[in-house]
C-alpha cells in the first residue's frame, strides 16, 4: 500500500484532497449527494467523457493536441449506425468494432496532416473540427436518427440494488469505460509501444536518434484517440437512445480542460490516466453538487472555466518558481544571520 501511494504524483494527490473536501462538503450540505443512486448516476453519465479522456491523454502525452475528436465521434455515430443498418442490425461486438475502426480512420487523417505535412496539431484539429462538423451537418441536414437497432437502445443493467432513494444501477457504458481505461493503461504503462509514445512526447529528437518510428507513433496516438472517441460516440448514442448531429459539439473543450486539470502537460511526456480521471471527476462532482444545491446551470461553465484558469496558473512551473523564491529568501536570511555571528 505505501508503495502504491508513493507512486501517485503531486497533482493527483491534490485532486484527491480537493475532491474529498468537496464530497464531504456536499454530503453535509445536501442529503441527496451521498447516496448510492447519485454515485451510480454520476458514474453512468460520466462514462462517455472518461472514454474520451483516456484517448485524449494518449495524444497529449505524445506531445500533440486534438480538439476534433468530439465531432469526430458524432461522425462515427452516423457512419456506424448507417453501416449497421446496411448490415441488417448487427450486435454490440460489430458495433464497437465499426465505431473503433471509423474513429481510428478519422484520427489517422489528423496524424497524416500533422506528421507528413508538419502542420501544428492545434491548427490541423481546428480545421478538421470544422471539416467533420460541416460535412456531418450538410449530409445529415441536421436530422437526428431515432430509429436505432434494438440492441442499441435496450438498456443493459450490469448491477442493480434497491435503496430507499430508488434503484441504483450500473449500466453498460461503465463497463466499456472500465475496459477502455484498462486498455489505455495497458498500452501506456505496459506495452513497449506506449513507452515509445511517452519517449516521443518527452524528447522527440532523442526518440528519433534511438530509432523510434515517429510517424507510426503519431498514427498510433491519434488513431487511439479516434478509436476511443468512436467507442464513446457509440456509448453516447446508447445512453441518449438517439443520434443527434450536434449532441457532442463542444464536449472536446470540457474533456480537454479536465484532462489538463489532471496534470497532463501540453507539449508531451507527462500525464497519467489517474490524473485525467480525477480531473474529470472533479468537474463532474462540482457540476453534480451545484445542481443539487440548486445553482443555475448557467453558472456551471463559468465556475469550471475559473477553476481551470486558476489550476493552470498554479501549474508546476509557478509553484516551483514560488517555492524557489521562498527557499532563497530563507537561505538569504540564514546567510545574513550567519554573517553577523
Amino acid at each position: 500500500m505505501p508503495r502504491f501511494l508513493s507512486s501517485i504524483g503531486a497533482t493527483e494527490r491534490w485532486l484527491i484532497l480537493v475532491i474529498a473536501c468537496i464530497c464531504i462538503g456536499l454530503s453535509l450540505a445536501t442529503d441527496t449527494f451521498f447516496t448510492l443512486v447519485n454515485a451510480f448516476d454520476l458514474l453512468n453519465s460520466s462514462a462517455v467523457n472518461v472514454i474520451f479522456a483516456a484517448g485524449l491523454l494518449v495524444v497529449l502525452v505524445a506531445g500533440g493536441i486534438d480538439i476534433s475528436f468530439a465531432v469526430g465521434a458524432s461522425v462515427v455515430q452516423y457512419l456506424a449506425v448507417i453501416a449497421l443498418m446496411k448490415l441488417g442490425g448487427g450486435n454490440w461486438a460489430i458495433g464497437l468494432i465499426l465505431a473503433a475502426f471509423f474513429g481510428f480512420c478519422l484520427g489517422a487523417v489528423n496524424a497524416t496532416l500533422i506528421y507528413h505535412f508538419r502542420i501544428i496539431s492545434i491548427v490541423v484539429t481546428i480545421a478538421t473540427f470544422n471539416l467533420f462538423f460541416g460535412l456531418l451537418m450538410f449530409f445529415t441536414g441536421g436530422v437526428s436518427i431515432y430509429l436505432l437497432p434494438d440492441w442499441m437502445t435496450r438498456r443493459v443493467i450490469l448491477f442493480e440494488h434497491e435503496t430507499p432513494a430508488g434503484w441504483a444501477e450500473i449500466t453498460l457504458p461503465v463497463l466499456v469505460m472500465a475496459v477502455v481505461v484498462l486498455a489505455t493503461w495497458f498500452l501506456m504503462r505496459k506495452l513497449s509501444l506506449g513507452r515509445q509514445i511517452f519517449a516521443m512526447g518527452d524528447n522527440v529528437e532523442g526518440a528519433r536518434r534511438l530509432g523510434i518510428n515517429i510517424g507510426a507513433m503519431h498514427y498510433l496516438a491519434y488513431g487511439w484517440l479516434g478509436a476511443c472517441a468512436g467507442i464513446a460516440g457509440l456509448m453516447q448514442a446508447h445512453y441518449a437512445q438517439e443520434v443527434v448531429p450536434n449532441a457532442l459539439y463542444g464536449r472536446e473543450l470540457e474533456v480537454l480542460a479536465a484532462v489538463v486539470l489532471g496534470g497532463a502537460r501540453l507539449g508531451g511526456g507527462r500525464g497519467t490516466l489517474l490524473g485525467a480521471i480525477l480531473g474529470l471527476a472533479l468537474v463532474a462532482i462540482t457540476q453534480n453538487g451545484l445542481n443539487l444545491l440548486g445553482v443555475s446551470p448557467y453558472a456551471f461553465r463559468m465556475i469550471v472555466g475559473f477553476i481551470i484558469l486558476v489550476a493552470i496558473s498554479m501549474s508546476g512551473e509557478t509553484l516551483g518558481f514560488l517555492t524557489e523564491r521562498m527557499r532563497r529568501s530563507r537561505r538569504a536570511d540564514d546567510v545574513a544571520s550567519g554573517g553577523a555571528e
Binding site: 504503462r189 505496459k190 506495452l191 513497449s192 513507452r195 534511438l210 530509432g211 523510434i212 507510426a216
Partner: peptide, 9 residues
C-alpha cells in the same frame, strides 16, 4: 522497448 512489435514491458 524499441521496435515496432508490441511487447509487454
Amino acid at each position: 522497448n524499441l521496435g515496432a512489435r508490441p511487447r509487454v514491458v
